[in-house]
Computed example of a mutant assay.
Amino acid sequence: MPYIDGDGRSQVSLAELIALRARVGRVRLVPLPSRSMRSGQQSSRLYGRGMDYAESRVYQAGDDVRRLDWRLTARSGKLHTKLFQEDREGCLLILLDTHASMHFGTRERFKSVQAARAAAVAAWHAVRAGERVGVMAFGHADQLLRPRAGPHGALAVCGALAEWDTKPPSGKVEPLADALARASRVLHGASRVLLISDGFSCDALARQRMLDLTRHAGLSVLVVADALELVPAPPGRYPLEHAGERREVLLQSERQRREFQHALGVGPARLGALARSLGLRCGSIDTTADPFDAVTGLFRVARAPR
């Protein structure tokens, strides 16, 4: 079946995700703290020619052939390059929430669409900074796109985001703690991790899993929420659909509206509070916002002068 691009509101638009590349190309990168600097590269914890062996990965164009791991190459039948701990190649792993709760929105677009837009901005930013980028979905979809370098890496992420969004949401639930534990097992040298979620999967064990993850990579959190999850709705009747059932909610008094907002917004509030309590870099956006500023802010970049 041929792929039909989404409308960018209830379904991800692949064309829009790809077009975000141009916007990211207009920002000025701000160097991150580093143990080593190389001319022409963004400063970060990079794998390179340090003395301590870290791991091996599949050979990529441009790798130094003197660093080939011949033993692993012989065993696997594929060329592998040795990576060393002193300077580490930057790598971003995006953790994307795909639970059914993400397929909800009362303003502009679904949270799932907004999350994909944010993930695409992050992917384009990563490859512009010379990093590899990959994405792991949790919840309804539990798939992994392993990190790749260059524009092809970001394009692969955009394609995966659009493909995963076409699958009808299910009632499958994956606690955030389980997703974080799974991410820890597939980091593959990632130096940065970006969690994009509405927080409804956040459980009691997530705190410890976040702490465990930060021992291996820098963790940032982007909370995605609908407008009704952030502020009380104006008085009125609100048609809502859940699990195929349509209902109408009548909100008149201030107490009713605040209780309704609290019930809807418990996920985003919980995840945001957890991230801040751990001192993590944390941002939040609603479904009407431009994710560009939130994501680039988490990645410590500055806009180029106009």
Rank of each mutant, 00 (worst) to 15 (best):
Y3F: 07
G8C: 06
G8E: 03
V12L: 03
S13L: 04
L17R: 00
L17G: 00
G25K: 12
V27D: 03
V27W: 07
L29P: 07
L29S: 08
V30L: 15
S34F: 14
S34N: 15
S36F: 14
M37Y: 12
R38N: 08
Q42R: 12
S44I: 05
S44Q: 09
R45Y: 13
L46E: 11
Y47F: 12
Y47A: 06
R49P: 04
G50A: 15
M51T: 14
D52V: 05
Y53G: 08
E55A: 04
R57Q: 06
Y59H: 08
Q60M: 06
Q60N: 09
V65K: 06
R67K: 10
L68F: 07
D69Y: 10
R75Y: 05
L79W: 10
T81K: 02
T81E: 04
K82D: 00
F84H: 05
F84D: 07
G90H: 01
G90S: 06
L93T: 12
I94M: 10
I94S: 03
D97G: 07
T98F: 09
A100H: 04
S101D: 05
S101P: 01
M102P: 02
M102A: 00
M102S: 02
G105N: 03
T106F: 02
V113M: 01
R117Q: 14
A118E: 02
A119K: 00
V121M: 01
R128E: 10
A129Y: 03
G130E: 07
E131A: 05
E131P: 00
V135H: 01
M136V: 09
M136H: 10
R148I: 08
A149K: 12
A154G: 11
A156D: 13
A160P: 04
A160T: 02
E163Q: 04
D165H: 01
K167F: 13
K172S: 14
R182W: 06
G189M: 02
G189C: 11
L194T: 12
L195H: 05
G199S: 09
F200R: 06
C202Q: 11
D203E: 10
D203N: 06
L205M: 11
R207V: 12
Q208D: 14
R209H: 13
L211C: 14
R215S: 11
A217E: 06
S220R: 05
V221D: 00
L222D: 00
V224P: 00
A225E: 00
A227L: 14
E229Q: 06
V231H: 13
A233W: 05
Y238I: 14
L240F: 13
L240K: 03
A243W: 15
R246S: 15
L250V: 14
L251P: 03
S253W: 14
Q256R: 04
R257P: 01
R257D: 12
R258T: 10
E259T: 13
Q261M: 15
H262C: 09
L264Q: 05
G267I: 04
P268L: 05
P268E: 08
R270Y: 15
G272D: 07
A273Q: 14
L274A: 10
R276P: 07
R276S: 08
L280N: 09
G283R: 07
S284Y: 13
I285M: 14
A289Q: 08
D293P: 06
T296W: 06
L298T: 08
F299P: 00
A302L: 09
R303A: 14
A304G: 07
R306E: 11
